Amino acid sequence: MNIKNGKELLKRCSEENLTIGEFTLKQEMEESGLSYEEVYGRMVENLRVMEFSTTKGVGEKVISVSGLIGGDAYRMGKYLDKGQSVSGRVMVKAMSYALSCSEVNASMGKIVACPTAGACGILPAVIMTMKEEHEIEEKDLIMGLFASAGVGAIIAQNATISGAEGGCQAECGSAAAMAAAAVVEMMGGTPEMCLNAGAIVFKNTLGLVCDPIAGLVEVPCAKRNAAGAVSAITAADMTLAGVVSRIPFDDTVAAMYSIGKVMPEALRETGIGGLAGTKTGKKLKKEIFGSKNGKSKNKMNDDTFDGEKEEKEEE
Results as ranks from 00 to 15, higher is better:
residue 174 S to H: 01
residue 226 A to E: 05
residue 152 G to N: 04
residue 53 S to G: 08
residue 57 G to Y: 00
residue 251 D to M: 09
residue 257 Y to K: 04
residue 110 K to L: 15
residue 32 S to D: 03
residue 25 L to E: 11
residue 66 S to E: 06
residue 94 A to S: 15
residue 132 E to V: 11
residue 31 E to T: 11
residue 277 G to H: 02
residue 273 G to T: 02
residue 127 I to V: 15
residue 105 N to M: 13
residue 276 A to K: 00
residue 155 I to Y: 07
residue 149 A to S: 14
residue 207 G to W: 00
residue 40 Y to W: 10
residue 163 G to E: 10
residue 65 V to P: 12
residue 118 G to T: 04
residue 250 D to M: 06
residue 8 E to K: 03
residue 270 T to E: 11
residue 90 V to M: 15
residue 244 V to S: 13
residue 166 G to W: 00
residue 159 A to P: 15
residue 54 T to E: 06
residue 194 C to Y: 03
residue 301 N to Y: 03
residue 197 A to E: 08
residue 6 G to Q: 02
residue 79 Y to R: 12
residue 315 E to P: 15
residue 163 G to Q: 03
residue 207 G to T: 05
residue 258 S to R: 03
residue 38 E to A: 11
residue 274 G to Y: 00
residue 309 K to M: 12
residue 48 R to I: 13
residue 11 K to H: 06
residue 312 K to D: 07
residue 220 P to A: 09
residue 261 K to C: 14
residue 81 D to K: 15
residue 94 A to E: 14
residue 240 L to S: 09
residue 263 M to A: 03
residue 314 E to Y: 00
residue 209 V to N: 08
residue 262 V to K: 05
residue 233 I to F: 04
residue 257 Y to D: 15
residue 8 E to T: 07
residue 57 G to H: 02
residue 295 K to E: 14
residue 122 I to V: 15
residue 262 V to S: 10
residue 77 G to H: 06
residue 289 F to K: 00
residue 51 E to D: 10
residue 294 G to M: 04
residue 73 A to Q: 02
residue 98 A to P: 14
residue 152 G to Y: 03
residue 297 K to I: 10
residue 311 E to M: 09
residue 163 G to K: 04
residue 114 C to P: 13
residue 179 A to C: 01
residue 194 C to N: 09
residue 231 S to D: 11
residue 198 G to R: 01
residue 161 I to A: 05
residue 56 K to T: 11
residue 159 A to T: 05
residue 170 A to D: 03
residue 257 Y to C: 12
residue 47 L to N: 02
residue 109 G to Q: 14
residue 1 M to R: 03
residue 67 G to S: 09
residue 277 G to W: 00
residue 243 V to W: 04
residue 308 E to T: 10
residue 219 V to R: 06
residue 262 V to G: 04
residue 294 G to R: 00
residue 234 T to R: 12
residue 212 P to C: 06
residue 153 A to K: 06
residue 217 V to L: 13
residue 31 E to C: 12
residue 167 G to F: 08
residue 242 G to I: 02
residue 11 K to I: 14
residue 191 P to N: 01
residue 221 C to K: 01
residue 5 N to L: 08
residue 131 K to C: 11
residue 309 K to Y: 07
residue 69 I to M: 09
residue 207 G to K: 00
residue 238 M to K: 05
residue 63 I to K: 01
residue 118 G to R: 07
residue 202 F to S: 08
residue 145 L to I: 12
residue 58 V to T: 08
residue 310 E to R: 06
residue 2 N to K: 06
residue 228 G to A: 04
residue 147 A to L: 10
residue 298 N to C: 13
residue 53 S to A: 14
residue 138 E to A: 06
residue 121 G to V: 01
residue 138 E to N: 10
residue 137 E to Y: 05
residue 160 T to E: 07
residue 248 P to E: 05
residue 242 G to T: 05
residue 212 P to I: 02
residue 86 V to Q: 15
residue 147 A to P: 14
residue 1 M to G: 15
residue 32 S to M: 04
residue 111 I to M: 14
residue 20 I to Y: 01
residue 241 A to V: 07
residue 47 L to D: 02
residue 3 I to E: 06
residue 95 M to V: 13
residue 206 L to F: 08
residue 118 G to F: 05
residue 97 Y to T: 12
residue 231 S to I: 11
residue 314 E to G: 09
residue 303 D to E: 13
